[in-house]
Design a binder for these strands. Sequence first.
DNA 1: GTTAGGG
DNA 2: CCCTAAC
Length: 662
Amino acid sequence: MVLNRRLEYGFNGYQVPAMPRGTRSARRRNSIKKNVEDSKMHAFDLLATLAGKLLVGNSSSSSSSNSSTKKDQFPVTDSTSIEERRQNQFTTQLELQACDQASCGRSMLDPQLVSQKHHDPKLSPEDTQHPVMGSTDSERLGTDELRIDKRNDETSRNAVVEPLTSTDSKLEDDTQNEIKVEQLHSDKAPNDNGAVMYSFRDPVVWDAKPLMQISLESGAAASFPANKDRIAHDSLSPARNVEVVSRDDDEKSSGCTHPVPTKKSFRPVPHIGDRRIRKVLASRHWKVALRSKNEFPRTGVNFKADYKDKSSYYKRQRSQRNYPFKKRKFFDIDFESYSDKEISSNAAVYPSENHTDGDVSAKRPSPPASGQHLSYQSTDSHVKLRIESFTVPELFIEISETATIGSLKRAVMEAVSGVLGGELRVGVLLQGKKVGDDSKTLLQTGISQDNQLNSLGFALEPDPSHTSASPKVSSLFPCDVPQPLIRYPIGPNDSQKRIHDTLPEHEDMNIPIVAENDCDMATSPVGVLKKGTTQSKALVPVSSMNVEALAVVPVHRKSKRSEFAQRRIRRPFSVSEVEALVQAVEKLGTGRWRDVKLRAFDSAKHRTYVDLKDKWKTLVHTARISPQQRRGEPVPQELLDRVLTAHAYWSQHQAKQQLKHI
DNA sequence: GTTAGGG
DNA sequence: CCCTAAC
């Protein structure tokens, strides 16, 4: 039993890169005639895209050795006003931006459109003041607090996570600017329920080790530079509670792969591999803001339309980065490349006939007090929306105080991904009311009207079909919790390798490895857990309405398993294994891999019949190439010869069978 | 759930 | 190893 100190983290806004819609085929415009449902799908697509690329990271000023690159760091914009902080409100906002292909394309390509919030002279003073936080608020932090600085200056826009605890945690330096976590500590007496979330609790007895609680409360609103005011407002919006408990200790952070299904009209969403994702994501900056708000049952999304503005007010252009890693060929949308100009995402520009250039901000409609701003500009009969921010359901993360930063990242990652990629639905709100009829057109709903646009909002809602149907809400990470990877203390820098190396060649594989973990985060609402006696609102269907919407969303959520699944650890076949394989194949032939598996690898849990089949494939290939070209542990020529022989035999055998049938 | 292949 | 189409 250990008394633990709980640390709570606030996520003060995730800044999400713009989501290019790809090429022509991806061009999308919200026709007024489109159904509300379509709008939801649009929004959801964005989320899906986002979810497929999420990665939680952090960077530390302490990791000075990190030469990695200032240029690689994404400038971080700050959308949180000091005012807001004073209110002891934390908001995590995911700001998405939906734009049609034309505008997106331009904004990404046109350097002029690339910009950054802080560079916008028109921004309110708060913008520049924000950085102060690091030196003021943080000072109030207790010794057990994790301080995460937020800096606005250009050279250090990465989130700074400084564990103030006695433990000198080292931070990985490969993930910078990915996320900004800011712990807010209000000096004011917490008088709202939200305060509870941030106040440090009394030591809590935990069965194992100290836990830190990270609460990513709702409202994740990735913010766009130009909407500070809105964000501030959003912070007042309702939040959902999702408690995530992670006790994972391993450091193999992230490695999350999530193929994001897309609608046919969309270009394939970049399918980022586990290892790639990190880098890819590292290229964008995330801003996380935390805020305490539990009042609202749901989160909202802000939409806003922008005016076309060629003479962008965004001027800063990020330097190009060169990623060493390969890109997947099918990345129609080169995430890496456009992410370089993430600023563009902040400067969504829409073609406008009546507005070609000039002071955009001036012409932009003043932010409605409603918080959910949506301005629009009508050209033809299309309603152009830009999702300025999505308020994601509140998250609550609890993690061991001694957990590694990597664990923290993962915890957050999982929580966020769970919300964004899990059972999520998009709801449409009009003037605060839910638009239940998905069959209505935007026109009918009135969304095409100016005044209405200003009150149009999108909300992320948990999918009742999943949440309610999933009784296992009690345990988070059912697979991870029971058998944490504690046995593999992972260093901050050699996560993957370490684990790999630690594994015995012929390990019995009883040790659960994340990579092989079948934990389906999707089935168990990501780390959704009830916090104390507080019911996790996130699990409660927002409304009984939108039943139809259910049919919409699921389409995008395909292989949930991959949501947090990690690529399995590579385990080269040993000679003895090859021997066994060859022998089995000689006897059973090719094409009966299941039998081969049962016969020769029945006890090797980590060798699936697919693996065996693949291995055979490579063996055949290996046998055919010159010894010089072979890599890895050399396989006795004798075995290779048998491989070729057996392969030839069974191939012929198979051919005969075919002829018979004919 | 297996197979077969491409990635 | 992963992902999927096709059984």
